[in-house]
Design a protein around this nucleic acid. Structure first.
Lengths: 334, 334
DNA sequence: TCGCTCGTTTTTAACGATAAAAACGCTGGC
DNA sequence: GCCAGCGTTTTTATCGTTAAAAACGAGCGA
């Protein structure tokens, strides 16, 4: 095992000088720098991370708390976070929380053991009441749902705007009776409520009358979407457009339409939200709102590295919203 | 920040004694143990991982090298590894290799920085020639493909036996002309070749004649499966069973059949391999070989923890094969 | 020649934990 | 009363790195 002193000896300088060279500190002559670099190379020296960590307090590791990497959306996020972190010289330790409050608390606790330089928490059961205490003084960024208005940096997606765009798109293509599959106006201020709000705003903006019968709450999955469409038909509610709050529900809605002997885009236009891989391969392929996942992750790491570098005051929590883009495919007539 | 000495002072003992209590070492009186535990509790002491790492050389972190967590199979694996490692008190740092040789080499290099106590490498571009050098003296387990016969522990899946079982199942249900979609007898000794070998062995065993026209190489994805079926029909090769080397290809094959106006299980029986989630939801649902992913991961961590504890000699590389199970669904007549 | 500055390098002293060795206190045999 | 033997606890000495302070040496004006 080659240590820093070994390198120092080989280069004829002190260990501290080697440290200075390796960390790019100023006040090192060009000649010395060259000699040290050469010795490092020759001996195959690799810095001992533990020692550096002990002395300087940084590990080069970022924690990522998500419910389960084996879920399309979170897997995607994890993949992007790992790649973007690697680009910045960090490694990522993934903590699976099982979407439980204890799991998330555990992840935060591990972070505070100084195991991680910072934490990205990509779902949130922890609430505002936890935020002030648990996260205080530690670099944390919430990705996706928001934890706390005041205490934690947050990167979100354009839930309101995306749903609004999708709805306006349907209106432009001639829809006048647009159902919001999964829509709900009450409950926590999560993605569902925001997307529903975007839908309503678009209707108002376009001068299309609202109708509460067109708000169809349902489970956020394939079966939920299918069932919601069946429900609408059974209730005799006429519709010519389906603004689904997620792609999964949209795919279910397509199946539901098929079961009724109808189809998109012939009998009704359909939009989704998320742009999951299957959306492009469905029959008909699905028009959907693509949130800028990559941009969200980049923004999250930007905020986090700023915090880790201590470049921002404790209390000014920032809030960033990622870009979004409407991807028009067959389900709304290509 | 509460240190061990703070706890020691509070409990009226030395730091070493606190260390002994915390690590469950013998020769600590019950009374002392109680006092120390109480002080730890009261002060909210958390061990500094970096210091322990520096002194003892362990980090409590396992590296996991995979191509990309955002791929169904690898996401599944990662999820299981993280959960199983957590159960054993380890955290997992995920390194994405992009399935490249450099990526994998990078992951191994990071491990050797003493960042990780061990490494699970779940795909392999590194070959036998790398194995002896790169992995020597560091706890590594290959999960899935094998790196090296002689130098690295390996947990694999029952490629041969699974394909054999699937083929025998088709024969039992009356098939006599079974095509191996994706089959190939040449190339590296990867999963594809092993599964093909299992297919051929089953045919011989059941006394069903081989036919090279029924070996249809193709890309290992949806499109590949669909194309292979189209090819068979175009070539006028008769078949009554399709043993597909992966579920993705099997789903493609179902689509291919549909495009020809045929269907499973009516016109041909179809089997897959992997038991991906979609297999159960396809129409018809897919009969497939389910490799025991969970058992494979458990075995991998068992091997790895043994290595990490230094309980096994350097050179005796072990090789474990996970269990498998044929899941019979609609595509072979339920 | 003597300070004095300034850029560079070394010295010193941790960071917080633990392995190994030394010390301690107690019992019991001679 | 002395000491060996035993179980428990403390001392000592790092692990490899880095912050902070001290030291060094060349250049320069007085």
């Amino acid at each position: 095992m080659v240590t820093m002193s070994d390198v120092a000896k080989a280069a004829g300088v002190s260990a501290m000088t080697v440290s200075n060279v390796l960390n790019g500190h100023p006040h090192v002559s060009e000649e010395t720098r060259r000699r040290v670099t050469e010795a490092v190379e020759r001996l195959g020296y690799r810095m001992n991370v533990a020692a550096r960590n002990l002395r300087s307090g940084t590990t080069g590791v970022i924690g990522l708390a998500i419910p389960d990497v084996d879920q399309p959306y979170y897997g995607r996020l994890a993949s992007l976070v790992i790649a973007e972190a690697a680009r910045r010289g960090y490694r990522v330790a993934v903590e699976q929380t099982g979407a439980s409050r204890e799991g998330e608390a555990q992840a935060v606790a591990n972070s505070r053991l100084r195991m991680y330089d910072g934490l990205i928490i990509a779902t949130v059961e922890l609430g505002d009441e936890d935020a002030a205490g648990v996260f205080a003084g530690f670099p944390v960024v919430a990705l996706g749902e928001r934890i706390s208005e005041a205490h934690v940096d947050h990167v979100g997606m354009a839930n309101f705007e995306g749903a609004r765009d999708a709805t306006l798109h349907l209106v432009e293509r001639g829809c006048r009776r647009i159902a919001a599959i999964g829509g709900r106006t009450e409950g926590e201020t999560g993605a569902a409520t925001l997307r529903t709000a975007g839908y309503l705003a678009a209707l108002d903006e376009a001068g299309v009358p609202r109708d509460d019968a067109l708000l169809v709450p349902c489970p956020f999955n394939l079966a939920g979407g299918a069932e919601a469409v069946r429900q609408l038909a059974a209730d005799g509610v006429p519709f010519d457009g389906l603004m689904c709050l997620t792609d999964a529900m949209a795919l279910g809605a397509l199946r539901g339409l098929a079961d009724l002997g109808r189809g998109a885009p012939g009998d009704a236009l359909v939009t989704g939200f998320d742009d999951i891989p299957q959306a492009a391969f469905a029959v008909p392929s699905l028009t959907t709102v693509a949130p800028g996942h990559a941009e969200m992750v980049t923004a999250a790491l930007e905020l986090l590295t700023e915090r880790m570098a201590g470049r921002r005051a404790e209390d000014e929590a920032r809030n960033v919203t990622g870009p979004h883009r409407l991807v028009v495919r067959e389900s709304t007539g290509g």
